[in-house]
Design a protein around this nucleic acid. Sequence first.
DNA 1: GATGTCCAACTTGTCCTATAAGCTGATGAC
DNA 2: GTCATCAGCTTATAGGACAAGTTGGACATC
Lengths: 248, 248
Amino acid sequence: MPRRQESPDAVKVRTLPVQVAAHLTRRIVNGDIEDGRAPSELEISQEFGVSRVVARETLKILASLDIVDVAQGRRVVVRPRAEWDYLSPLLIEWLPTEIVDELLQELHRMRVLLEPELAAMAAASITDEALARLGDEIGRMAALEADPEAYLEVDHEFHMEICRAADNRILDRIMYSARWLGTASRRLTNEAPAGLRRATAEHTEIYEALVARDPAGARAAMRRHLSNNYSTLLAEKEQRSKRAARRR
Amino acid sequence: MPRRQESPDAVKVRTLPVQVAAHLTRRIVNGDIEDGRAPSELEISQEFGVSRVVARETLKILASLDIVDVAQGRRVVVRPRAEWDYLSPLLIEWLPTEIVDELLQELHRMRVLLEPELAAMAAASITDEALARLGDEIGRMAALEADPEAYLEVDHEFHMEICRAADNRILDRIMYSARWLGTASRRLTNEAPAGLRRATAEHTEIYEALVARDPAGARAAMRRHLSNNYSTLLAEKEQRSKRAARRR
DNA sequence: GATGTCCAACTTGTCCTATAAGCTGATGAC
DNA sequence: GTCATCAGCTTATAGGACAAGTTGGACATC
């Protein structure tokens, strides 16, 4: 049973360092910070009115996301954006919508490369127990089409189960981050996923190919699923920008 | 000129929190810590003789690697190993050789899935400037076959340049972590890479396919390169375990 | 006895102050 | 001009204090 970090509508309480890190990151993205020179611990603590400990932890968070480089004696420097850890859900919450939209498309292109092959590998090696779990999850998804949030949890589990059949911690980690990124961004835009009924049908197709131990079929089914997913993604984006235009 | 973080034989100076985090992680991997219950800040600071600030940062590091969960009021808990961030070079340095060997194989299987496709995509879309850089890098590699450390830097750049042609920050990040992981583990085992001459020849094949804008050729050349890489990896592992056996 | 309330103890979050250690740039000797 | 030295800035670590959140047990109630 996947544990939930917070109830759906709970206001997310974040520690001070995380809040300050979010502010600083947004400022860097905006170009409000002169090239390369990040503020020092002292400057952060004064500007945000927090203690030096918090300022320190802020910089450590940014460092762990490869946003800055920290070393004793030297000033903190901003790293090139190309090297930031875009696999982190934390970072994605701090980025403006335009960039998140781009990242989601890039994420999707990555999944199109990996997941069909994962499905094919799974068809060859998946255990009966894993198949049973997949079947169970499909049943749960069918019952949850009215509750998108819960549906997505099971959806996530379904794809991860297939990934797990590859018995590869690196791939596992990548897919884990990838799918979490997707849900994080969805929560960000506060959007309910569309087309759940179709998704269940597609999941069933994948499942049946796996049961038949048919690699080519599984690959094709997964590819179809992702391609439909992508259309949904684009439609959502379209909707979002329309709403934004209306607000202006 | 890529900057070097330290001279080859310099003893790596790490901050206290990183050292303590390494100890704790090894202890968790060894099973010396009862299930789920990680030591508290106070316990860490007493046991390792460090201040609470250091103990705190230690836990924050472990949390950023998804090794533990930290929340106010609650005890720190160890997360399931399957969810640890195996894409982090920091973590890989703390793991025992057997696990690193497994991870490197899993890493390789991931690259086999991604890199040939990346090469194919690059063949279709790469710019002349990027091609020029690749050509330059091949020249540098040919001149550096006697200096494995420096060779690997350029090797890394070569593969990243191809990845960059896909114009995808997610893939970029994955490949960045992946290749860094490889060099980190290599530094860990203190092993000089073998077969550099052959590697240069293979890089040239890839390069020529890219120049010819031949996706299928680039895909095939990259696949050959990776498969040879893999043989080298296995040979190195073989050698390593032989040496270990001799020491016993 | 079962149940619900409340509180004390424990744990992490934040603040303050002080000192050690490392880097950078400017100063000055040669 | 070149090079060593040093002052000043920055991060690293330490210790003590209080705030805030969680947990489990004591206790009253039914």
